[in-house]
Design a protein around this nucleic acid. Sequence first.
DNA 1: CAAAACTTTCAATATTTACTGAAAGTTTAG
DNA 2: CTAAACTTTCAGTAAATATTGAAAGTTTTG
Lengths: 167, 167
Amino acid sequence: MKYEIAKNKFIQTWGTLGTKWGINKTMAQIHALLFVSKEAISMEQIMEELHISRGNASMNLRALMEWGIIYKEYKIGERKEFFVAEKNFDELAVKIAKERSKREIKPTLKVLKEVSQLEDCKNDDEVYFAKQTEDLYQFVLKADNMIDKVTEYEKNWLSRLIVKFIK
Amino acid sequence: MKYEIAKNKFIQTWGTLGTKWGINKTMAQIHALLFVSKEAISMEQIMEELHISRGNASMNLRALMEWGIIYKEYKIGERKEFFVAEKNFDELAVKIAKERSKREIKPTLKVLKEVSQLEDCKNDDEVYFAKQTEDLYQFVLKADNMIDKVTEYEKNWLSRLIVKFIK
DNA sequence: CAAAACTTTCAATATTTACTGAAAGTTTAG
DNA sequence: CTAAACTTTCAGTAAATATTGAAAGTTTTG
């Protein structure tokens, strides 16, 4: 496959994958572009390569920086800002996992805890609801704690996890 | 909190969480409703509780069955179909993980492999692209294999994983 | 076999989500 | 200080996605 075709295909595929996981297409595409770029690139270049507007580029670059998976870089003698992606895979996975935990899992846990504490469980339906939500709370909590634990201080956590599990 | 309020809040929250992970709101809400219901419930009841149309209910029930996380049930003397959710947490997590792997990860792996095989890498950019996509392929492959491995025959895999990791 | 009881389909429509682009904001250079 | 170079914001619009509802399909019953 030719470079231009391959690069474009990669960017499109990563964008599509993003949408299926609740990440907007442009955000995923910008990440893909930076991820395969050896050099830091400017907003101008991003707009051009992805055919997107200045506003779109600006907003999604900010979002990616908030996720901590791309960084700003300054070149001497240049006024413009340039961007680079986090290139370490474990670091990337850790940051995504932590951010999603913070944004989505933890708020959900809070609600699960709330709703599982019913005032008074008169009938079977109420007892069952309380039990199911309580159990779900415990399960999600356990999974989320594992994310915290595994990603906190570990480098190469994925490899270590695999080794440990296979044993 | 009162039962009706709590139940509604749980359904809404689960629906919202779904949308953030690329699952449509109604699908997640139907799942939530069935998940906290002791008895199997009919399409009619689902439509009523969630205020959705017949078509919407029908399509999302089918989707949930394709994911293997809800089941049809028949009651004697009743013409209607009733539905129940998978209530085992490990089973639920396994099915979701496998389905997402099949639908999203494996197709992505295929593309990653393709694009990493560049015809000829003349310049630095091309070499870098090939390296990054190849490394990404390996990383995603490793993660996906772990999902396969962990979910294939194991019961209580999450607990076992935690125990193994903490050791 | 016909009608009743139920489910599925899908074109039209509504809703949600993302994107644009021009104006406003900010920083740097001279 | 102010003009140039650049970035951000956000109201309006476009695109993507989900939902409706009525018609078509299917199964069961008498």
